[in-house]
Nucleic acid binder design. Structure first.
Lengths: 222, 222
DNA sequence: TAATGTTTTTAGGATAACCTAAATTTTTAA
DNA sequence: TTAAAAATTTAGGTTATCCTAAAAACATTA
């Protein structure tokens, strides 16, 4: 619990958390793709993570991995670091939301608990990062997420953008240009069932967005 | 030059810079002590650093190591990161001067050049860190140091403390309690040639300081 | 200058985290 | 239901960075 986990292990846990968020175990291949390493290397590492004491993951051959409670706590710690750092970099150093990810990616592994506490306090304990992602609490619980993907909305529904889940710099810049940032009020004007395109009105402008984009934007309807 | 140096290598270079500041090469044993590793490991690493292209150190068996211009640039980069970070942690997160070292020690290896630029600009390009250490310039030159060790002063000389060179948390707290911080105006009242103790007046108070301390405090006389 | 002590290096090993290629298992689809 | 494709695992290797123990070089001093 208090033994220091390597950066590499922290990355594994973080991505396993993400990939198994839907309940289904994370697959070796998906994990390898996320981590940018070979599937064979992933197999080796998850076998190790499953056999340390206490185990950080649950693993059965060919069945993928899930986190144990210990593994999940470790993952949430890293995710909390990452998201607090993103918020901090934007608020105090003028980073834009498309620039912060990479920097936070490296810093998240090295900051102390003291540092974490200080930036959280300095920002008044924010609930979300600049992309709208929920920040795990100090006691490492992930707050409940009551948002839905924009892709599930249909014409005449209105919503407020809560979160954009993508590390893609270009996409983020594009969305910012369109005004599609957390807090933005939108209305669905049209839906095309064949390609799942949605026509969205933001302020006075309308835009057509593909499923690739609408599935990454999470909204609060109402 | 632009290949990323590992954290470990950055640490070697930083300490070689420091240990060879007096012109004499850094010894294997001293380096090992600084790095907290065995002398045998140091030998292995400096052999490697001497044989990469371009070489980062000059090394001859049993003669110690010095930095090449490339090695020195790399060292100054890390030192700049460290000192800027210390200043930034103190200024923006309320760290005290005895708390910053450890945190900066880890962050120095992972911040981007962009981050470096942003914090330098945010602080108005400071010349010294919270201990008074000179910060290498953005083009990686170490500014000239015109200070002298307090230990070289004699009775009736007055001086202004410019820098305290020690990572020792307890010592730093002690000195702060005594008011012996950068900027403090002091006067030497007495010198004991046998133990090299100095009696120092700061404001209204006087204190006797041993060589162990006075050799770590650097002052500007006048 | 020879003996002793210190410093440094060599030799041989360990571990973490990756790799490729080949083998195996699982899934898909003819 | 079986053959092909895809996913996963095993086997064997590499590199970086550390280790201990033993050997060698250097320095000191009697």
């Amino acid at each position: 619990m208090s033994e220091t986990l390597t950066q590499s292990i922290q990355d594994y846990l973080k991505h396993i958390y993400d990939l198994s968020a839907d309940g289904a175990p994370a697959s070796t291949n998906d994990l390898a793709a996320r981590l940018g390493i070979s599937p064979a290397s992933v197999t080796g590492m998850i076998q190790r993570l499953a056999s340390v004491t206490p185990p950080l993951v649950r693993y059965q051959k060919h069945q993928g991995v899930t986190l144990t409670p210990d593994g999940e706590r470790a993952a949430l710690e890293v995710i909390r670091h990452h998201r607090l750092l993103e918020a901090w970099l934007v608020q105090t150093l003028g980073y834009s939301w498309d620039e912060v990810h990479e920097e936070a990616e490296r810093l998240e592994h090295v900051i102390s608990e003291d540092f974490e506490r200080r930036i959280a306090a300095a920002m008044g304990h924010p609930l979300r990062d600049p992309h709208g992602e929920l920040i795990p609490t100090a006691d490492l619980k992930m707050p409940l997420d009551d948002t839905t993907p924009l892709s599930t909305l249909r014409p005449n529904q209105t919503a407020r953008i809560q979160c954009v889940k993508s590390p893609d710099t270009d996409l983020l810049r594009h969305l910012e240009d369109l005004g599609l940032v957390p807090g933005a009020q939108i209305e669905v004007m049209d839906y095309s069932p064949f390609d799942h395109n949605l026509t969205i009105k933001i302020g006075l402008k309308s835009t057509v967005l593909g499923f690739n984009i609408t599935s990454k934007i999470y909204v609060e309807t109402g």
